[in-house]
Write a protein that binds this DNA or RNA. Structure first.
Length: 607
RNA sequence: CGGGGCGUAGCGCAGCCCGGUAGCGCGCCUGCUUUGGGAGCAGGAUGUCGGAGGUUCGAAUCCUCUCGCCCCGACCA
């Protein structure tokens, strides 16, 4: 039992001016955390208690499928060079030097270190499968920390890694994690959804994210109420209605039309009397590939530029995440940005506003070929990667820019009038489009926070770092890997986002720092104090974590504080005591009920 | 990194235009009264005005540089 009067629980009446989202405001007002620097927080008593409860649940569930390790946060450069990510991680990685001048970094994730162990130690298929996990601090130099604990530079992650002999094994390990994650988040009292996800910088094939719906979230997820399809907007697809193509004009070859001053899609469509759906949008992007210092041929250290032209239907927009995914394998670690004016002129020989795909010097071959070209470092700057959104596949007689001022082209048919480097899904779905799976439901798009992510990594790290085991035939094979993360603080923050009102928040009992706060309305009344101590002791005996508010404060002050700090139940010991009664208050519903002093423990929801 | 905003007491803010005494509310300390939804009265403490340089007799206030923090866009647990 803890006595409030002896604790340091610095609650505030007002939230700091720079806190925007609910969890940030309340974590500070309730005295859970204090900020040290941008994206760096100190966890005080209540936050730490909650964190310990959360990690306890995570550990209990993870121990059913894996083994807990504890790896160093301080990593030597070499292991990150081995996977190629010393360069790829760029500015997001905290880097430092030791006294001898050797490069080190603070771990952002631990594929490298785990794989290093596997590489050195695993020898035989008989040792597989393995699932290794840890709960540890991660460091990421985020470009923009924000929203209190939601996006920070130092945080706690449960990260797990699986090693299997083959794809079927990986499937099994992945499925174990999926089930374990469901158990963990359910026990933590969160309402969550599982969505298909983009694999991002981690590489690999399949991945799913565990998401909590909240407006404080930074992710968008598309879902179908009808069949349950759900995917991150970076990955979500939809079924588009067919568009009626225009009839060819003249001889059917690309036809120059004068469009004076018409730069936007809408202007041109209106001017020519067609729908934007019959137009093509040409987006000029530039990929900057950071020089891969040790492994590649570019020793000058300058980033290599590679133009990427994206064709979209006139009324569609570009998903930069999907573009990055489409280009990712060919240009690892590339940063993609819109071209600047000079670059547009160099590539198109035309001012912006009249850009089009016809006549561009594109890169040879299909997407695969581009990857090859990029890898041997020969043809970086030759030609343009011309990617066409799949919504334009099979379309004909489109209208696009002519690469000269005030002119557009009619009768443009992809594949005939220009040859794409490849087709890819490059646009974000929008709310109201048709579900790609059931073909019936309409998609909704909503904000969410990512609390967990599971990946089928494949061979990326085991291959690049040279992990090998002998199979049952004595043949050397590369183990296949998975990686699985949970953001511990985000369990806390998203629980607050899901459970708050204007007065404060209430955590699910399993992760609350205390399950019950016993409030004595007047500590100078010996009979009340006596009764409160007994009630508190009974609750503790019944397995609750009890906080006794024995401060010499007016009842109103204590009620306000109790409402604020996230404790799901409150027992008021006051005026009812004369009749042997106390009040049980459920924070979530604000319901009060009178119960006999001796029946309190039984009247509070299970913990 | 691009764009916007803010740094004055523990928290929330005013003062800055128009240079001269640093102020308000909450919180904190002491005493008395009060005691079921952030009490009342009386007394009290607390500031490198983010930092550096400059202008000036004089700078929180004007100028320059700088650091920090927050928000909006590209990344991720």
């Amino acid at each position: 039992m803890h006595l409030w009067s002896k604790l340091f629980l610095p609650t505030l009446r007002e939230a700091p001016a720079d806190a925007e989202v609910a969890s940030h405001k309340f974590l500070i007002r309730a005295g859970y955390v204090r900020q040290l620097s941008a994206g760096i927080y100190s966890y005080l008593f209540l936050a730490q208690r909650s964190m310990v409860k959360i990690t306890g649940i995570v550990r209990q569930e993870m121990d059913k499928i894996g083994q807990e390790f504890y790896l160093p946060a301080l990593n030597p450069r070499e292991v990150w060079e081995a996977s190629g990510r010393w360069t790829v991680m760029g500015e997001n990685m905290f880097r430092l030097k030791d006294r001898k001048g050797a490069d080190l970094c603070l771990g952002m994730t631990h594929e490298e270190v785990m794989t290093e162990i596997a590489r050195k130690e695993l020898r035989s298929y008989k040792q597989l499968p393995q699932i290794w996990y840890q709960i540890q601090t991660k460091f990421r130099d985020e470009p923009r920390p924000k929203s209190g604990l939601l996006r920070v530079r130092q945080f706690t992650m449960k990260d797990a890694y699986s090693f299997d002999i083959d794809a079927a094994g990986l499937d099994a390990s992945y499925e174990k994690h999926r089930e374990t994650y469901k158990a963990i988040f359910s026990r933590c009292g969160l309402k969550f959804v599982i969505v298909k996800a983009d694999s991002g910088a981690m590489g690999g094939s399949g991945s799913e994210e565990f998401m909590v719906h909240t407006d404080a979230g930074e992710d968008l997820i598309a879902s179908c109420e009808k069949c349950g399809y759900a995917a991150n907007i970076e990955k979500a697809t939809s079924k588009l209605e067919a568009v009626q193509d225009l009839a060819p004009e003249g001889d059917g070859r690309p036809l120059l039309v004068h469009t004076p001053g018409m730069k936007t899609i809408d202007d041109v469509a209106k001017f020519l009397g067609v729908s934007p759906r019959n137009k093509m949008k040409t987006m000029a992007m530039m990929a900057e590939v950071k020089a891969a210092s040790a492994s590649s041929s570019h020793k000058d250290g300058k980033p290599v530029l590679r133009p990427i032209v994206v064709m979209l239907r006139g009324d569609h927009s570009l998903s930069e995440a999907k573009l990055a995914a489409a280009v990712g394998s060919a240009l690892p670690g590339a940063e993609i940005r819109p071209m600047v004016e000079d670059e547009i002129r160099a590539v198109f020989h035309s001012p912006a506003g009249f850009l089009g795909p016809v006549g561009l010097t594109r890169a040879e071959g299909d997407g695969q070929k581009v990857a090859t070209l990029a890898k041997d470092g020969k043809s970086y700057s030759e030609g343009v990667i011309l990617l066409v959104d799949s919504a334009l596949q099979g379309r004909s007689n489109l209208i696009g820019g002519a690469n000269q001022e005030d002119y557009h082209l009619k009768n443009v048919t992809p594949g005939r009038d220009f040859t794409p480097t490849g087709y890819a899904d490059l646009r974000p779905v929008e709310a109201g489009e048709t579900c790609p799976e059931c073909g019936e439901g309409k998609l909704t798009v909503a904000k969410a926070v990512e609390i967990g992510h599971i990946f089928k990594l494949g061979y990326k790290y085991s291959e690049s770092m040279g992990a090998r085991v002998l199979d049952s035939n004595g043949k050397e094979v590369t183990p296949i890997m998975g990686s699985y993360g949970i953001g511990i603080e985000r369990i806390l923050t998203s629980a607050i986002e899901q459970n708050h009102d204007e007065d404060g928040f209430w955590l699910p009992p399993a992760i609350a720092p205390f399950t019950v706060v016993v409030v004595v309305t007047n500590v100078k009344d010996a009979a009340l104090m006596e009764a409160a101590k007994k009630v508190a002791a009974d609750l503790e005996a019944a397995g609750h974590d009890v906080l006794l508010d024995d401060r010499d404060e007016r009842a109103g002050v204590k009620f306000k504080d109790a409402d604020l700090v996230g404790i799901p139940y409150r027992v008021n010991v006051g005026r009812g005591v004369a009749e042997g009664k106390v009040e049980v208050f459920t924070r979530a519903t604000k319901e009060k009920k009178e119960v006999g002093m001796n029946e309190v423990a039984g009247s509070i929801g299970s913990r």
